[in-house]
Amino acid sequence: MSTNKLDQLYRSVIMEHYKHPKNKGVLENGNVTIDMNNPTCGDVIRLTMNVEDDIVKDVNFEGEGCSISMASASMMTQMIKGMTTEEAVKLAHSFSDMMLGKDLDESIELDDLEALSGVAQFPARIKCATLSWKAMEKGVSGESQ
């Protein structure tokens, strides 16, 4: 088996986030709710955020999906908490670039997210990784429901 390639996809930090997701649940005091799904595979996510003065004060996610989509959501919530909406959107764009295999601005701190860089080699799985980020971008840009 091409275990090496697989190991690049399923890095231990991803499996750790999948097994023990951060910020899982629904925010009671959230003022932004976004539901998004991936119609080609059935993954669903609900993002609840508390955005005040253009700062993401708190964020939770709930959903069903594969290890990649759920781990990505967990990492995303961990990273954007406390960011300004502008910073969060900028990070989402950097993440999107990483999925497309583009070179990244080195000034951006990716932390755990770096583990998802292997997804770029699995084109069928890129949408799994980007689902929660798309939901977040929609939320902070004021397109909430």
Partner: peptide, 27 residues
């Protein structure tokens, strides 16, 4: 998750379908 199953099988040369199979009410 079925996507993860399908990815590992694909790495072994085996093509299966994963998802809702265009039958969301049945899922």
């Amino acid at each position: 998750h079925p996507h993860d199953v399908a990815t590992v099988l694909d790495m072994n040369g085996i093509a299966v379908r994963a998802g809702h199979h265009c039958a969301q009410p049945l899922m």
